[in-house]
């Protein structure tokens, strides 16, 4: 069963159809499978030049972060600004690491982002499967509720959420930032859209005929099919959770920070050293950049293949 090739959901139609249990048949004429789908003109030097400009634009702020992290505060305050690496990189990294609580921050962020990712993907897959393939009463209303939730600005919940967290005595503790983020309406929507098309109903029925109960169906049929979309959702969720900012800055403090909270502490000091601040920014970004450098191809492929709502 795990050999089932998932059908790519139709990428061009993110419109939700509440009545759609039946898989929307992807337009057969779209050339699929081959990576060279679509029209392929040869890129000329103009194309390469434009792309090169954007490459520089994309990388420059990151590279300059590293450059700035290698200079003293006094050097950074001079014009023209430095374009080459200085000799204070280790000093600054060391100082950011120690004064900014960066070690704890990175560790915390990994736990937080990891926990959020696991639970978001798991619950979104379960709910997405139910919404995509199982008949049940109140389904449409509930799905509408999910869509509506996507509209809720995160700022909205902050006030009562903080009161609840305080009531529970969780201020400045990691569960304060994990629990409120454990599910995502977007994730449910995302998985539903994928499974509606990727999961053949016959497959489910066949499993039923074999006497499998729902949990077994999920384990042996749904999860294998959903895996590519789950991977993409996991990546999106992890990056978002890693960079999550608004809620952690309120629920946590510099004493027990995530990376983003620690960074804001570095940035607004009494005698802040820009070099150290940049070193902190570098430390907070590096883990994700390394992941991107190693798995970049897979991530790009995943985003393009798995779906595209983001």
């Amino acid at each position: 069963m795990s050999t089932t090739t998932p059908v790519t959901p139709e990428t061009t139609t993110p419109v939700l159809e509440l009545d759609g249990d039946k898989p929307r048949t992807p337009p057969r004429r779209a050339a699929r499978g081959g990576s060279g789908a679509g029209r392929q003109m040869q890129a000329g030097w103009v194309t390469y030049t434009i792309l090169a400009v954007f490459v520089v634009g994309s990388l420059f702020p990151l590279v300059w972060t590293a450059i700035a992290a290698s200079h003293s505060n006094t050097r950074l305050a001079q014009t023209p600004p430095p374009f080459t690496f200085g000799d204070r990189l280790w000093t600054n990294l060391d100082q950011a690491w120690n004064t900014g609580n960066m070690g704890l921050a990175l560790f915390n962020t990994m736990i937080v982002a990891g926990a959020i990712t696991v639970s978001t993907v798991l619950f979104a897959t379960l709910a997405g499967f139910a919404f995509a393939k199982l008949p049940f009463r109140g389904k449409n209303i509930l799905m509408l509720l999910v869509i509506g939730t996507m509209m809720v600005p995160p700022q909205l919940g902050v006030v009562p959420l903080f009161m609840a967290i305080a009531e529970l005595g969780w201020t400045n503790q990691l569960q304060a930032v994990i629990l409120p983020m454990m599910v995502s309406a977007f994730g449910v929507f995302f998985m539903r859209q994928y499974l509606v098309q990727a999961l053949p109903t016959e497959l489910l029925e066949a499993a039923r005929v074999d006497g499998a109960n729902s949990l077994r169906v999920v384990w042996h049929v749904v999860l294998p099919v959903a895996r590519p979309a789950m991977a993409v959702l996991a990546m999106l969720t992890f990056v978002t959770a890693w960079n999550e900012f608004f809620w952690p800055i309120i629920a946590l403090t510099q004493q027990n920070p995530t990376v983003q909270v620690a960074l804001t502490g570095l940035g607004r000091g009494y005698v802040p050293d820009q070099g150290v601040i940049m070193a902190g920014a570098l430390l907070g970004t590096l883990p994700l950049l390394i992941v991107f450098a190693i798995f970049g191809k897979q991530i790009v492929g995943g985003i393009m293949h798995g779906a595209l709502k983001g």
Partner: peptide, 28 residues
Amino acid sequence: TPRTRMTRRAAVGTAAMMLAVTACSSSD
């Protein structure tokens, strides 16, 4: 000191992952 703090955080984080939140210490 930092290390002991970290282990406590780790425990808290893991507990939260398993939804055993009630078991968490509540005061800092």
